[in-house]
Amino acid sequence: MTTAADLAPDASRPSLRADSAAIELTGIEVRFSMPTERIVSFKEYVLKRLAGKLEHRELWALRSLDLEVPPGEFVGVVGRNGAGKSTLLKVISRVLTPTAGRVVVRGQVAPLLELGAGFHFDLTGRENVFLNAALFGHSSRIVQKHLHEVIDFSELEEFIDLPIRNYSSGMLARLGFAVATMFRPELLLIDEILAVGDTGFQEKCLARIHDFRSQGTAILLVSHQMESIADHCTRAVWIERGQLKAEGPTDEVLQRYSEGFAES
C-alpha cells in the first residue's frame, strides 16, 4: 500500500508509475463547512450574519486519502453509510473539487451513477439518446454515427421513436445503460451493480463492463453488496470516516471489513 509520505513531498512532479494510472488521488481532503442550523431564507442569512450568529460546523467527508487505480483494474469500494464513498466518486468525476490534495484522472470518465440523466418523458427514445449523450459531453455528430449501436444494444428498435412515457422501467434502464456505455471510457464509475432489465440483459451489461476492462478501462465499483464486489473486483478499498482503512486483494479487505463490522 502506498503511504501518504511516498507521494506527499512533491505532488506536481510526475513519476513513471503515476503517469500510467487512470486515477491518482494524493492526499485528498474534502471539508464541508455547514451552518449548524438550516438557513433557508436570504433575509435570515443576512440578519444572522449581521448579528454575528452564523455558526459553522466543519465536516470532514474525506481526509488524507491516497488511491491509485491502474488501467484495466476493477476496484471495489466498501464502507458504511456516510463513510465518504459517494464523496469519493464525486471527487473523481470532478463534480466536487477537493479542499486539499490532488486528483488526476486520465481519459474519459463514464459515470454509471445516473442512468438516463436528463431523460424527458414527452420525448422519444431517439431524442433522449441525443440529449442524454450530450450530458456526457458527446457531440450529436458522433452520436449520430454510433446511434444504431446504442439502439441495437438496448434492444429497443421497435420502440425508439415512441415517447419514453410508454417505456417500462426496465426499458428505460436499458436505454440509459446503452447511452452511458456507448463509448469505452478510460474510467468507469459504478454505484452498485445495476439491476438493469431482466437477467439476460444484466448479463449483457456485465459482459460489456468486463469487455471494457479487458481493453484497459479502469473500474471503480461502490457497493454495499459484498458478493458483487467479491464477484467482480480484483482489488478492494475500505473507507471509514473519510479515510482509507484498508486496501489490497479483495478477499483480504472484505474479510477485514466484515470482521470490523462484527466488532462494532
Binding site: 477537493p98 490532488r102 488526476v104 484522472v105 474519459q108 470518465v109 481493453q215
Partner: peptide, 14 residues
C-alpha cells in the same frame, strides 16, 4: 468498443 477520438488524451488534474 469505440472510443470517442478526442477523449483519449483528456486529463483532469485538480
Amino acid at each position: 468498443s469505440p472510443i470517442q477520438p478526442a477523449a483519449r488524451q483528456q486529463v483532469y488534474d485538480s
